[in-house]
Amino acid sequence: MRPDRESAGYTFVFAFVVCVACGLVLSFVAQSLRARQEFNAALEVRKSILQAARVVPGALQKVPLQEINSLFERNIRSVRVDSQGGVQAFSGAKDQNPSQEGNPLYIYHEQDRPVAYIFPVEGSGLWGQIHGFLALEADGITVRGLAFSSHSETPGLGGEIDKESFLKGFYGKKIWDEKSRQLVSVTIAKGRAADRVGSERLPYYVDGISGATLTGDGINVFLKDTLLRYKPFLARIRVGERP
């Protein structure tokens, strides 16, 4: 005989069984896929660093996975910058060791000469946290590239910050105003940069994405914040010091 479907006891037992079953299924799925997901996320970080530094020309989409890791290990050195702008060798294993003092920095070397400095940038966009990397040329003034490793902006609007067409706008822009001797950072304009600012300010502005003004505003804030945090370091490399 079947138990009464509407009795309190049956309801409780049923709810309990469903909860346990769901919990088991989910834990199993999450547990078995976690290693792969973390691998993906770590790879995405390395990819973004390589992309920001423009180690290989063009998109990294077609580069095979193993290639990414070996490219990274061959070209990129991971260091820490202390509050005076001095660079310390990185003592952690791999590229993550949150316990060490100082701000993280990645240096792209070619034949033992630094080609680019890569700064991790992060802050809030419109919907959530954006993580990425900003690369400067060895002069410490010119932007070499920018790449985002994770964000949750609206697909097609703010999500366009991933697209090469937008990121290309950053290439060759300046973060330092030689005349006023000030760190001005690089700013995403609302709409076309040329319509917004005069030609003398154009080196510090990038064309915005239509419909994604708030995402752009968020990025502007954290790009500037990051550069200010590395101010002493930037001052040192501007005068030609090499870490």
Binding site: L33, R36, Q37, N40, E44, W127, P155, G159, D162
Partner: peptide, 12 residues
């Protein structure tokens, strides 16, 4: 997230 990372990044 495990097998189509680029897609999941877009869909958020």
């Amino acid at each position: 997230r495990a097998f189509f990372y680029a897609v999941s990044k877009q869909m958020s």
